[in-house]
Design a protein around this nucleic acid. Structure first.
Lengths: 343, 343
DNA sequence: TGCAAGCGGGACGTTATTGGTCCAATGTAA
DNA sequence: TTACATTGGACCAATAACGTCCCGCTTGCA
């Protein structure tokens, strides 16, 4: 059955949204015995007109009875609700989870794909696809999109598709180069995204990890300075989330710094910064890319990360509180929910 | 899984239509390796613009690759098609069958619900619902709808719903009263339908089975005459289909006539007439209701009947050739298809 | 190498659909 | 009877869908 839903999701992505809306209307009506349109619209957060279109439809389907006194559920509607009961969890379980997490961290949107990226490459791919969808949704015209590196972002970039070319948009790396494999460099990802969407891109040919002096002198270079300004003006940022220690080592951060971070219980890494479990930044360093103050200013910040092992790190970064959207997977989301419950 | 589809059918009735359209596009593209929009539109009987909207969508979903050379399927699309293969039959098998039957008998539309009305009351209910949908689709303003009697029609009437009241429409019985139970009388059904849809109705208080003399004298009555004229002017006729012998006995047709019909191999009964397997009428009698010549003139004739045992009778009436729509169930449809294959 | 057929995609005007808002008619309960 | 809440109709604005035409590009054939 899951496979059927997966297929339908690909062929009719907003199927579940519509189904859920209608299900909830029906359910609310049943719980209310008899209820009026306005009351119902208010309790479901729908405008009166939209609700009316839906109730007219449900009436036509014979699931709802409407008369001058109000609406109540029909026998067929009651039967349908009963039959849907067992399906509800599998069909909408994730969107409930999405809503809980969205609410808790004050996000604009949360998107959860089924599965666990740690164990299933398929889930990882889905995660990328969901990331694409989230990004597509917020991109407009003339937007600058800054992206970080990492395997998840690389996965996203490799799957990105658009209906029409986005000529007027720019993709830029959020940070400079790291010691990682080429495929996972922010530069590579920005360029892949631009190529796949028909957008433009700029690269930042500067190491991410800089001494203050090197930073100052590099920023004197007009061409470096120029692209850095573009990066810092990004309206949209898409970033991954990593484990603090793993990332620090991969970035060859000084052993002394690593130990300091360990002492401060650094847990998560995102766009080059390290966070403890409360979302406090525990280590800063000068960077030619996006700085914390830029992130705070950015209009849309999208985090994308999945896998049970990353749940804690994701929760930490969410506590930092400057993300607007989270794209994750079921395993990580359950982990996050568990952390929320423990609070 | 079937239950999921059933539920979705109620909450999103045209889900399958859209899914099938997209599936067929994808499939056609795969079979064609590389194909252009216009060619594809022609081979799928879609207008160019509609197809374009769909292919843009499929491209956005990453299922289709489009470049200046044409369209081809992506890996994800190919995977999707493979995954759908087993689902196709359960999801669309009936609509293929619908199309075959529609084509063979030159109908405007065929609607098949899953199951067998002979054995499952649930299927019988579904049949009624499908009949409602078919009827709703063809009803406009100021229409006169003539309905016959029978349990299937009664079932339909009991489930009929409309979004808005159809004040300007009239429901009338197609034929006079029979010896049957009150619930199954055409009069009862016309009145139920009118009440449930907010339409008007007229009754025909005349026995269906009349001697020529009685017929002539009854037709002198102004009020009988008036309603009979309304009936005969019906734009829409909805009728059931029965087994000839069963119906004849139920109607207490003279034993001599029954034997004559048996000799002529009467097989099916519909709107008071008896048909042999070739759709030829084998017995006529004067009636105050709809006559054959009225049926021939009627703009929309809808047949509704299901159950494996009725397959043969349905096929016979379809051969008569004046129906426009058929609403039936899977068991009967398969029986009809088997008869078609034997031809 | 040149040509023509077929391709995607842009553009535009028209039509159909959807959503917001207001109000009249109606039924219900106090 | 009155006051309230209900549905359903009406209307307008915004938007999406659609039909149609054309342009520039690629590609395969001559």
């Amino acid at each position: 059955m899951q496979s059927l839903i997966d297929i339908q999701q690909q062929l009719l992505p907003d199927l579940l949204v519509v189904m859920k809306k209608r299900y909830l209307i029906l359910r609310q009506v049943m719980l209310s015995d008899m209820i009026g349109r306005r009351t119902l619209a208010a309790s479901l957060n729908l405008t009166e007109r939209v609700l009316r279109a839906e109730t007219d439809f449900l009436k036509g389907q014979g699931l709802l009875l409407i008369d001058a006194a109000g609406m109540r559920i029909s026998d067929a509607g009651r039967r349908l609700l009963e039959n849907m009961e067992p399906l509800y969890k599998t069909m909408f379980g994730l969107s409930d989870l999405e809503e809980r997490i969205r609410e808790r961290f004050g996000l604009k949107g949360v998107s959860i794909v089924p599965g666990d990226s740690d164990t299933s490459p398929y889930t990882k791919r889905e995660l990328g696809r969901a990331g694409c969808a989230a990004l597509r949704k917020v991109m407009g015209k003339d937007d600058v999109v800054a992206v970080t590196g990492g395997s998840t972002l690389a996965n996203l970039a490799g799957q990105m598709m658009t209906q029409a070319p986005l000529k007027s948009n720019w993709f830029v790396p959020a940070r400079g180069g790291l010691g990682e494999s080429l495929d996972y460099q922010a530069n590579t990802i920005a360029s892949t995204l631009a190529k796949r969407t028909g957008a433009q891109y700029r690269l930042l040919h500067v190491p991410d990890h800089l001494s203050d002096e090197a930073y100052m002198s590099l920023m004197q270079e007009p061409n470096v300075r120029e692209i850095v300004e573009v990066i810092r003006s990004a309206r949209i940022v898409v970033h991954g989330i990593g484990d603090a220690m793993v990332m620090a080592r991969r970035r060859r951060v000084d052993e002394s710094v690593i130990q300091a971070m360990e002492a401060e219980k650094a847990l998560a890494e995102a766009f080059g910064y390290y966070f403890d479990r409360n979302g406090e930044v525990v280590h800063k360093m000068s960077t030619a890319g996006l700085r914390l103050e830029d992130i705070v200013e950015t209009e849309v910040v999208i985090a994308i990360a999945g896998g049970r092992s990353k749940g804690e790190a994701i929760a930490a970064v969410m506590r930092f509180g400057h993300d607007d959207m989270l794209v994750t997977d079921e395993a990580a989301a359950l982990e996050i929910a568990a952390i929320m419950d423990r609070e």
